[in-house]
Computed example of a mutant assay.
Amino acid sequence: MFDQIIEASKEQKIVVFIDYDGTLSPTVDDPDCAFMSLDMRKTVKKLAWCFLTTMVSGRCRDKAYNFA
């Protein structure tokens, strides 16, 4: 449906907010082991090329940046 979303958003400003833990990465017992899969990284990169995209997290900014 990604192409349909892009088509429907023409001439509009879309902003995407995505939670990290449990959304971009799987939920795990040790938060330091919550890594995004390669497929998820590719998807987020594709999304960010089309829309203003930001990650939401309760982690400190440096840690969230390094995980992403």
Rank of each mutant, 00 (worst) to 15 (best):
D29W: 09
S9C: 05
K10Q: 10
V44S: 02
T54R: 15
A48S: 11
T43K: 10
G22H: 00
K46Q: 14
E7V: 07
Q4K: 11
G58K: 03
Q12A: 11
T27L: 13
T23W: 00
D30M: 03
R59N: 03
E7M: 07
K10W: 05
N66G: 10
T23S: 01
F51Q: 02
F17E: 06
F17G: 09
V56G: 06
P26Y: 05
I5G: 06
Y65Q: 15
L47S: 03
A64V: 06
V16P: 02
T54M: 15
M40C: 06
D29Q: 09
M1R: 12
D62G: 14
D32E: 11
I18D: 04
A48T: 07
C50K: 13
D3G: 07
D21C: 06
K45S: 12
S25R: 02
A8M: 06
A48E: 08
A34V: 00
R59T: 02
M40N: 05
D62A: 15
D32N: 10
K46E: 14
F35E: 10
I6R: 08
T23C: 03
K10G: 06
G22S: 03
L38K: 14
Q4T: 11
K63M: 14
A48D: 08
P31R: 01
Y65V: 14
T27N: 13
N66M: 13
K13L: 12
V56F: 08
F35P: 06
S25K: 00
V16I: 06
D39C: 14
I5P: 03
T54V: 14
T54K: 15
A34H: 00
F2A: 06
K45A: 12
P31D: 00
K45Y: 13
L52N: 15
M40G: 04
E7K: 08
R59Y: 01
R41C: 13
Q4D: 12
E7C: 09
E11S: 12
A68G: 15
M1N: 12
M36N: 01
D19T: 01
G58D: 07
D21M: 05
M55C: 10
V28L: 02
E11F: 07
G58F: 05
S57D: 04
K42H: 09
I6N: 07
F67N: 11
M40H: 04
K46F: 07
A48G: 07
Y20E: 02
D29Y: 08
S37P: 01
T27G: 09
D30C: 03
S57Q: 04
F51L: 04
T54W: 13
L47W: 04
D32W: 08
K45L: 14
N66Q: 13
T43V: 11
I14P: 01
K42V: 09
F51Y: 05
S9Q: 04
E7Y: 08
P31L: 00
S37V: 00
R61Q: 15
D62S: 15
M40A: 09
V15S: 09
T23A: 03
S9V: 02
P26T: 04
C33L: 14
W49D: 14
T27C: 10
K46W: 10
D62Q: 15
N66H: 12
